[in-house]
């Protein structure tokens, strides 16, 4: 039995079954619309309403401040470092875990998941305990004039921690499901490890990988709690976009706060749009490969 990996919603059901009684259908649809409307659409709408309260001119002016600009640049830099590092890790971990059985595999899986359930406050705290002036490495760093926390490296590390599981978690079930027949065949034909990876594994998982990258990136750009602990909040220097939103909010500049927040909400929407596109592509690829397989083996 073929299973779609988790998190990959099969939107366009191949066969939508509507054999439930009309009233059941109507009730369930009503509940769904209401529930998602109240919990998801309303918060989203409120952000844009608040942001546009004083008109589009004020809205756009919020982005022209140098501090907003610096925050956006820092956020882009942080995710540009954190996402590729986690992609490399995700690929390595998925290869080791999905292709081999070994002792401690389940513990490794759980450890990979751990950052996902750890409170962001703790994620920040651990780096303070490690790199703070009174932490394990702090005195040494201080002597060598290296600043880790309250500077960009600390923000990158906290972001790495928080987004750690995303790519790996996406790839592991996907690669397990796909099985290693193709790779084994290539091995028998004499392909090297790198060749197998570049020609077979990577093309096979590319959409799942992209999906993981998209989620990882969204989280990297949006992380608040952990980054807030290690940032130091220096204006124009160590404030990421979510922190800048908080600052504006605390300056009673609600319109600008929601305007910058709407940027992140827009990012979320673009993320969701990309994700839907990726899913659509995956399904089409699947359908095609299924069709061609059926065609070749009558």
């Amino acid at each position: 039995m073929k299973r779609t990996p988790t998190d990959m919603p099969p939107v366009a059901a191949t066969h939508v079954r509507e054999n439930d009684p009309r009233w059941v259908r109507a009730t369930l649809i009503a509940i769904t619309v209401l529930f998602l409307g109240i919990f998801l659409a309303l918060p989203l709408a409120s952000i844009f309403t608040e942001a546009l309260r004083k008109g589009i001119g004020v809205y756009l002016a919020s982005f022209r401040q140098p501090d907003a600009y610096a925050a956006i640049r820092l956020t882009l830099l942080v995710s540009a470092i954190a996402v590729p590092l986690n992609v490399v890790f995700g690929l390595a971990a998925a290869w080791a875990i999905a292709r081999f059985r070994f002792c401690g595999r389940n513990v490794l899986l759980t450890l990979i998941d751990l950052p996902f359930a750890v409170s962001p406050v703790i994620s920040g705290l651990i780096y303070v305990l490690l790199f703070g002036l009174h932490g394990w490495l702090g005195p040494w760093l201080n002597e060598h004039d290296l600043q880790v926390i309250f500077a960009v490296p600390g923000i990158v590390l906290a972001t790495l921690f928080v987004t750690f599981p995303f790519v790996a978690r996406e790839l592991i079930p996907l690669m397990e499901e796909q099985g290693s027949e193709e790779e084994l065949a290539a091995r028998v034909l004499g392909a090297s490890g790198w060749q197998i990876f570049w020609r077979i594994t990577l093309p096979n998982v590319r959409w799942g990988l992209l999906y993981g990258v998209i989620l990882c990136n969204a989280r990297a750009m949006g992380e608040f709690g952990a980054v807030s602990v290690v940032s130091g909040h220096i204006r124009g220097l160590t404030n990421t976009v979510p922190l800048h939103v908080e600052i504006l909010y605390n300056e009673y500049n609600f319109v600008a706060a929601f305007a910058v927040a709407s940027l992140l909400a827009l990012l979320a929407l673009v993320t969701l749009g990309l994700k839907t596109a990726v899913e659509w592509k995956v399904r089409r690829d699947r359908a095609e490969s299924a069709a061609s397989r059926e065609g070749s083996t009558p």
Partner: peptide, 26 residues
């Protein structure tokens, strides 16, 4: 979302992930 088809289903399905993608402070 899986069993019924109704107008707006795709849209609803897409925004289910909003809490994943939206920064928590916001």
């Amino acid at each position: 979302l899986v069993r019924y088809s109704f107008p707006g289903r795709r849209l609803l399905d897409a925004i289910v992930d909003l809490p994943f993608a939206m920064p928590t402070a916001i």
